[in-house]
Design a protein around this nucleic acid. Structure first.
Lengths: 245, 245
DNA sequence: CGAGCGATTGAACGCTCTCAAAGTGAGTGG
DNA sequence: CCACTCACTTTGAGAGCGTTCAATCGCTCG
């Protein structure tokens, strides 16, 4: 997975374009929703729109954190590694999500595309300067960070206390509900990530993920469809199984 | 564990006092650090100082979230429950920590004292109004939320991918480093919480926690002392074991 | 001194992992 | 058009880490 080099705009894996925010179709979903036209223009002045292919690194754990990103299309995964290679995916980000809410001098995680993605890239210094001018935007970011924190606590409950079956059911429901909030179809659910990615997100192995999907399939609760889609037949059963009822 | 009722100031388990923030000894550690004297006075006008005994509930999961808190002394635990009683502690809060960064209409977790605690209680509406006036304070809260988020991601790595021994070592190091940051002694480490609390924080059982402490003791890496203190003999060994080296 | 709670230790079980092999599907080139 | 490769997924068998169940220990408090 070759790194994304911001300097090489002609690299086949990444292209850079300029775009006005006023016409952005996903603005209402994200941090830019709070801004008026004048503020939007100021924001557009500092950002680049970036297109990145699937399975490419956006930035690596430990890199100097000199840019933040907003996902405008596609799916991104964030992960941390242990010295021996064990991996924990801390989140899958989709349209409207912001990369860099938890930020220090350097990135504390690697960001990698799962599918082809379009991102808005904000130079960090310039965005911070803008935040001081636009309290509304700062407030919006704080609110997004609060939601992230709540989601992180849910994920801790999942990782620490749920069984494999409960983890998979919770995962499918999370994808379904999130798709609904973003105005996408919530059933069947689009599941673009690999079994290995799902495993590293849920604290399992690929084998256990695969076996559990088979169990749910056999029980008639889900069915796998073309194009990485999963049809949820028993939504209520899924809810119950996600919490061990 | 009886609930803390804000109305009964004479309840033996909780007392309410008024206190000027200017003299607060822990101000530099927390959200109030950024404020000037005038702003501090405004803040002092809306807060109550609350004293709560050990093992009492501050608020419960699902309660209407009408107050935020700042811990000025003692240790607080936050946890979420599954319907069948399985519990995940999402954090232990100490002096300077803020309760309520992840906030919706209702609390998404229960907050309970581990030791006797002193808290600053902020009515939510009034604090939010103040935040609009004091961008510095909002910025400080955002920065605290960012740090919380980074800590939550570390905890996900721990819960999803670390072994029991690595979890315990990481936990002790976290306590030690945090104590140092707050100006307390970092070795021996003060560990006020029970084995059951540690287990529910690390995604283990009390038996496994106990067994692992015994292993580390036998290996000469730690030794248990009077008053819930743990002496770390092999700090370097502990660092290595926390990441599986 | 006895009750009671938390911590420790022991023994056996089981869920998930590890290791291994076979199946599936997309892309490539002959 | 088909054989081949390669990556990913699925399935199987066995092992191990942490759990469960149970008993004992140790401390605090009435």
């Amino acid at each position: 997975m070759p790194p994304f080099d911001q300097g090489r705009a002609r690299d086949k894996s990444a292209t850079i374009e300029m775009n006005p925010c006023g016409a952005c179709p996903v603005r209402s979903l994200t941090v830019c929703a709070a801004l008026d036209p004048e503020e939007l223009r100021r924001l557009a002045d500092i950002l680049q729109t970036v297109r990145i292919e699937a399975n490419h690194t956006i930035f690596g754990e430990g890199d100097a954190a000199d840019a933040l990103y907003n996902v405008t299309s596609g799916t991104v995964k964030l992960y941390k590694l242990l010295p021996d290679g064990r991996r924990q995916i801390t989140g899958f980000l989709i349209t409207g999500d912001f990369i860099g809410l938890a930020l220090n001098e350097s990135y504390a995680y690697t960001a990698e595309t799962v599918t082809g993605c379009t991102l808005c890239r904000f130079p960090r210094k310039k965005l911070e300067a803008l935040l001081d001018e636009f309290p509304k935007m700062q407030r919006r970011l704080f609110s997004m960070a609060s939601n992230e924190l709540a989601a992180a606590q849910d994920q801790m409950l999942l990782l620490g206390r749920k069984t494999a079956k409960e983890k998979i059911c919770s995962f499918l429901l999370m994808l379904s509900q999130r798709a609904a909030r973003r105005g996408h179809k919530d059933n069947p659910v689009h599941v673009p990530m690999s079994r290995a990615d799902i495993a590293d997100y849920l604290g399992l192995t690929t084998e256990t993920v695969s076996r559990t999907f088979t169990q749910l399939k056999t029980a008639g609760i889900i069915s796998l469809q073309e194009g990485n889609k999963i049809q949820i037949a028993g939504m209520d059963a899924l809810y119950d199984m996600a919490e061990g009822c």
